[in-house]
Structures are given as C-alpha cells and as structure tokens.
C-alpha cells in the first residue's frame, strides 16, 4: 500500500541527484554521523543529569535550557541529512526491517523528548524516581533509534 509512495520518493530530484553522484551519499552520511554525535552529547547531558550523574552542580532546568539550542540544532541536522539519505534509497528502506524499527521509534523518541522529558526537566527541582525514569527512558528510546539507524546499512 505504501510502496508507491516510497517509489515516488526515489524519483524526486533530491533522490536522483544523490543517486547520480559518487560522493554525495557518503558525504551526507558523514554529516548525519556528525549530527549523531552532537545529538548524543546534547541528549545525554540532560539524561545523565536527570539520573543524578554528570553536571550535577547545575540545576536540571538550567542545564536543560542551556542544552536546548544545541539539541534543536542537532535534530535539524539529523532530519535534513536523514531525509535526503532516505529519499535516495527509499525502496531499499521499504524492504528493510531496521528502517521500520527506526521510523516507528523516532516519533516516539521525539515526542517523549519534547512533551514528557522537557516538562520533567523544566520542573525538576531534585533528582527523584520520576526524573531517573525519564532519563533512562530517553536513553533507551534514542539508543534504539540510533542502533536501528546503523543497522539499515547492514541488510
């Protein structure tokens, strides 16, 4: 049912430009990885803090608001490069289990980060069971997204 959409994705000008270039895909992929590092750092800083580790001399709301612009930058970087990579090999992705794991976990991770974790971090005066659970859930969700993303390349 969705296959025609994936076929259309692969015929877009962005997709064909990437397909027709020897180095465009690797370069976008490398930038995607740099974005992953930035995302990993900005996610972990707050997750660690929520679990009572890392930069504990800062309050949770302070750290959360200071990391936020870098988190948003990293997510923008990931989405722009990630969508480009996807368009160029959409049909391969359609038949790829890891892709489906990633694309279903990603909205979960994003909504958890901005709807649940952000609220907990803004109001979190002290580390308690709720903040620890939030930090741990965030680590697990983003771990699945990243691991499944890497796994797309193996099949």
């Amino acid at each position: 049912m969705l296959l025609p959409f994936f076929e259309w994705c692969e015929s877009t000008p962005i997709a064909t430009t990437i397909q027709n270039s020897l180095w465009l895909f690797p370069v976008i992929e490398a930038v995607h990885l740099l974005g992953l590092c930035l995302l990993g750092g900005s996610i972990l800083l707050v997750d660690l803090r929520l679990m009572g580790a890392g930069l504990t001399r800062q309050t949770i709301p302070e750290l959360n608001s200071q990391v936020r612009p870098w988190l948003l930058g990293a997510i923008t970087m990931m989405i722009v490069t990630g969508v480009s990579l996807f368009l160029s090999e959409a049909i391969k992705c359609y038949y790829n289990q890891a892709f489906w794991v990633k694309i279903t976990t990603l909205p979960l991770a994003l909504s958890f980060t901005f709807l649940v974790r952000d609220r907990v971090a803004r109001e979190g005066a002290y580390v308690n069971a709720a903040t620890r659970l939030t930090g741990a859930a965030s680590v697990v969700l983003w771990f699945i997204v990243a691991a499944a993303g890497r796994w797309i390349g193996y099949s």
Partner: peptide
C-alpha cells in the same frame, strides 16, 4: 561484525558527543 561496528558507532556518539559539549 555489525554488532561490533554498531557498538563502535554508538560509543563514538557517547564520547565525541560529550567531548564536544565540553569543547563548546
């Protein structure tokens, strides 16, 4: 091999990510 390499990539996201935060 994929497990080894995925672990390599994710560990890099952890260490380069936190290192870059310190660099900032």
């Amino acid at each position: 091999w994929p497990l080894l390499e995925s672990t390599h990539v994710l560990a890099i996201a952890l260490f380069v990510g936190t290192a870059v935060m310190m660099d900032l």
